[in-house]
Simulated scan of single mutants.
Amino acid sequence: MPMPYETTGRTNQKARTRQALVEAARRLLAEGQTPQVEDAAEASGISRTTAYRYFPNQRELLHAAQPDIAPDTLLGPDAPGTLPERLDAFVEAFCDYNFTWQHQLRAALRVALEPGAARPTLRQGRAVAWVEDALRPLAATHPRVDRHELAVAIRSAIGIESLIWLTDIAGYDRTQATRTVHRTARALLDAATDATGATGATDGAVSGKVHEKAP
């Protein structure tokens, strides 16, 4: 298997060159552009030929320009230990994260929606784990709730995709959009916990699924 270009030879210099391309791409993204490799090369003063050695296509460049933090949680050590306050704190932090990095995330979505695009270059499911962490108190209070399933539902309703719709289509400002996804997350949590009950007993519902035939 061929080794990545930047891992051979003058690795320190190559690391600086790669970072210069990434930072140039991030600046262009912040300006509302969706840069190609040659755009990042021009903005960083690096030749196109050299740039393509690091990033053979736009997709890899945009992937590298994504947020480079990968914490296990977005919640701090002083985060609430009970629900729904813990979920509220997470949604606030997640919205801040998405708005901070919205240019990169918007660009990744645009590329992912192109015909023939491969798997999206977003967080690859990392955000679902963040939601699961926010829902951790359910293990004690509502053990029959499927936390992963609930986390996927909440992530689908509060992520960058929803924020883009709320701001670009509905015309909401950041505060209104954040308030809306807060309410949605709360509603999903309430529906899951109401279905199972506080002790985990169910009325034909397990893990938030009702065992009845669909109408």
Rank of each mutant, 00 (worst) to 15 (best):
P2K: 06
M3C: 12
E6C: 10
T7P: 01
T8R: 15
G9K: 09
G9Q: 03
R10F: 12
Q13E: 10
R16K: 11
L21S: 01
R26V: 03
E31L: 10
G32I: 05
E42S: 09
S44I: 15
I46K: 04
S47T: 15
L61R: 07
L61Q: 05
D68G: 00
D72F: 06
T73N: 02
L74C: 04
D78L: 15
V91D: 03
Q104I: 00
A107N: 03
R110M: 08
R110A: 07
A112M: 10
A118Y: 07
R119S: 14
P120Y: 07
R123W: 11
G125T: 14
A127S: 14
L135S: 04
P137N: 04
L138C: 09
A140I: 08
A140P: 00
V145K: 14
D146L: 14
D146H: 15
E149V: 11
E149I: 10
I154P: 01
R155I: 01
S156T: 13
A157F: 01
I160H: 08
L163N: 01
L166K: 06
T167N: 05
I169F: 09
G171N: 07
D173S: 08
T175M: 09
T180M: 06
R186C: 03
A187R: 15
D190T: 12
A191T: 13
T193G: 04
D194S: 10
D194N: 12
G200M: 08
A201Q: 11
G208K: 14
H211R: 15
E212N: 12
E212V: 15
